[in-house]
Amino acid sequence: MRAALSRLDAKGSPYLYIVPFFLLFGVFGLWPLLYTGYVSFNDWDLLDAGEHTWVGLANYRELLGDAYFWNALGNTLSIWVLSTVPQLLAALWIAHLLNHRLRARTSLRMGVLLPNITSIVAVTIVFTQMFGRDFGMINWLLGIVGAGPVDWQANTWSSHLAISLIVAWRWTGYNALIYLASMQAIPHDLYEAADLDGANQRQQFWRITVPQLRPTIMFTAVISTIGGLQIMAEPLLFAGTSTPTGGSDRQFQTAALFMYEQGFREFRFGYASAIAWTLCLVIAVFAVANFLLTRRIANDEK
């Protein structure tokens, strides 16, 4: 009897533990998404209270020939690379710095994490002021060192740089603490053995710390990819006027912002849904590629 119960426990309880997640997620996460999928095959005017006609793949066909979509996708990738790569490297470095015996270590850690508790709205307003063309703090600093003022919003590169900085500022500390948590878990004797072998700190960092962090690095890379490719609020607020076109020439309109524009400004719910699902596919491809790539890099380091 007891044995039977225990077998039932071993077989059944795993499902029991994941059921709440899938149940809640199914209803409040998955269902809306599947519905969005259905909508994407329709011509659907948001203002027309659900009136729609089935158009098959027309929305997707239109999307693939839409120069503004490709423009937005390119911007997304550019901002994603500009924000994610330096962000993760900086996080690794900061985590390494924090992984010392430090005075005031708690305060330092909290200080690093501070940007993450602020709201995107607040942060973007502050940074937009700092990146101001005529009276911004950054152009003022540039002026002191003799560099000309930059119209940050006007150019493609400068707007991407500014938005990437806003994103990276907010998330670097967060990733650093995740790395730190994993660094704390690396067995000390690995370092002790390396010390005995005469390996220096740099070698130890690349040969022990980084490979040991492999699952965590993969985790942050995948999460950053998923988040980074969905960036919407920052470019929307960076424009300063709440116009979702991402600048006068769409120079910093991301794919998610393009979706927002089509859905909530053009009220083309069907087309916007098609963008959502296409973007989802792109993210999946990148997340998987990222996963494989980081795994390989981390393996090579070993």
Partner: peptide, 15 residues
Amino acid sequence: VESSPEWNNGFAKGQ
């Protein structure tokens, strides 16, 4: 650009 933060500043700075 009308309604932008910089436009807001423009009043105070007399631009």
